[in-house]
């Protein structure tokens, strides 16, 4: 034999094919008969998500339905992947609002900095994961779409334990 091949001697109980096969067959049969199946019936039963799950965004609104965003420009600045597009504007009362506010959810890494940095608690990440779309364009959420979202917003920290202790 070429080279120096190490041959490991194992006891019969470990190396016997017959015993190993019998053991394997008993294991599969036990699982076959076990009523404890792990499958989750997904569309019928859904995941229970943690309150701090970070998913697609949602924009908070005033009582009259206007977006809370004041177009301060902090979120596009802090965004590490540059996925937020913001064009500010001013109304007749001199209040700033977002004329264009778009988030490219394909680019987003769901870090949550935008929510953290927002001074008026307008933009939020959401507790949400079902995001299938028919086209890539649909993945760019505009302001209207962000306002329409209805899922829970992400809690960035546990209110009972703000310092994560």
């Amino acid at each position: 034999m070429p080279g120096n091949v190490k041959v490991v001697e194992r006891p019969r109980a470990e190396s016997s094919y017959v015993r190993a096969a019998a053991k394997g067959m008993s294991i599969t049969m036990r699982h076959l008969l076990s009523p404890n199946k792990k499958t989750q019936q997904y569309p019928d039963e859904k995941w229970e998500l943690a309150p701090r799950t970070r998913g697609t965004h949602r924009m908070a609104v005033h009582e009259d339905g206007r977006a809370k965003c004041v177009a301060c420009g902090l979120c596009p600045t802090v965004c590490p992947v540059n996925c937020i597009k913001l064009v500010p504007a001013e109304d007749e009362n001199g209040e700033r609002y977002a004329a264009i506010y778009e988030i490219d959810e394909f680019r987003c890494i769901f870090c949550g900095y935008c929510q953290e940095v927002c001074p008026v608690e307008a933009i939020h990440l959401g507790v949400h994961y079902e995001n299938a779309e028919y086209s890539r364009e649909r993945w760019v959420y505009d302001l209207e779409r962000l306002v329409e979202q209805e899922h829970d917003v992400t809690a960035l920290w546990d209110p009972q334990d703000p310092a994560s202790q």
Partner: peptide
């Protein structure tokens, strides 16, 4: 038969004498 199969080296990789020196 089952005793022989149990003692046999059908599936064993590293049994003593399973590979002869001649290769």
């Amino acid at each position: 038969l089952f005793f022989a199969m149990d003692r046999g080296t059908l599936i064993r990789g590293g049994a003593k004498g399973a590979r002869s020196a001649g290769g």
